[in-house]
Nucleic acid binder design. Structure first.
Lengths: 127, 127
DNA sequence: GCGTGATTACTCGGATACAAGATGTCCGAGTTTGAGCGG
DNA sequence: CCGCTCAAACTCGGACATCTTGTATCCGAGTAATCACGC
């Protein structure tokens, strides 16, 4: 059980996009170079972020990706959910039968982590 | 990113072992029937729990698995770590470079979840 | 100079390949219990 | 009644088979800006 590398890439990319000037979109090539991975793969990850509404893309020459919305509102959880999906970390006996107490414990534990990730904004890194 | 089913099986099995009388070991067949999975597969999972020191096995006729140590001390985290391993959920740029602030945030978030799992004992389910 | 077309620099999406891990299954080997049998 | 042997009921461990998922690459298509060229 691990978070995927894609989540890692997404978080770093978002941090870079926040730090960058918001007027001009940033190309995939540039973003990929920063993290040493192929542009085609990164574009796949960014597509998820676009569909989640976190960023927007501009096609054509001088195109690229740009932050969407206020950067102060962007939390870690937003990015993680965009990549990993919003389904629960733990899947118990069938689906959501409320009798299983083990399931309950796992859910509250997961909630504790999510709350932390929701309260931490990406802007906080910029100091 | 999900917890494996094996963790789920292990938790349910441990809960059953705690509820059972401690004098006699419980056979794999019986434990597997409870959850509707093959005994051979469950035995693989239980082997991990044995190696982690949570339970002990008795071979031969009338053999099976038995709880080891005091059941009051057994937390969710013990079982999860026995199955999933103790490595961190999140793997950032290389290994543990302390500069990466994203890594820091993820670690504290994971810690929040683990603390909850560490404080919840399996006995608590028995009411 | 000005419009028009070609070129270029991008993103987008699908198809595909590859590797690793999770999930199960099968089988042979060792181990303990207990029953059966002969003395 | 005692002791020996043998079969049955188990666990243990390794070796597979399969399936899903993550990771990554390639290519064709669409799109917007820019450049070139002819009028």
């Amino acid at each position: 059980m691990k978070y995927s590398k894609a989540t890692n890439y997404a978080l770093h990319t978002m941090a870079f996009l926040i730090a960058a000037a918001p007027d001009r979109p940033v190309g995939v090539q540039q973003l990929a170079d920063k993290q040493g991975l192929s542009p085609t793969y990164l574009s796949k990850i960014l597509t998820k972020l676009v569909k989640a509404g976190l960023i927007e893309s501009a096609s054509g020459a001088n195109g690229g990706y740009r932050l969407r919305g206020k950067k102060e509102d962007l939390s870690f959880l937003d990015v993680i959910h965009a990549i990993e999906g919003t389904t629960s970390i733990f899947e118990c006996c069938g689906s959501g039968n409320p009798e299983c107490q083990i399931h309950q414990v796992m859910l509250t534990a997961e909630d504790a982590m999510e709350q932390h990730l929701r309260n931490t904004k990406l802007v906080d890194l910029m100091k």
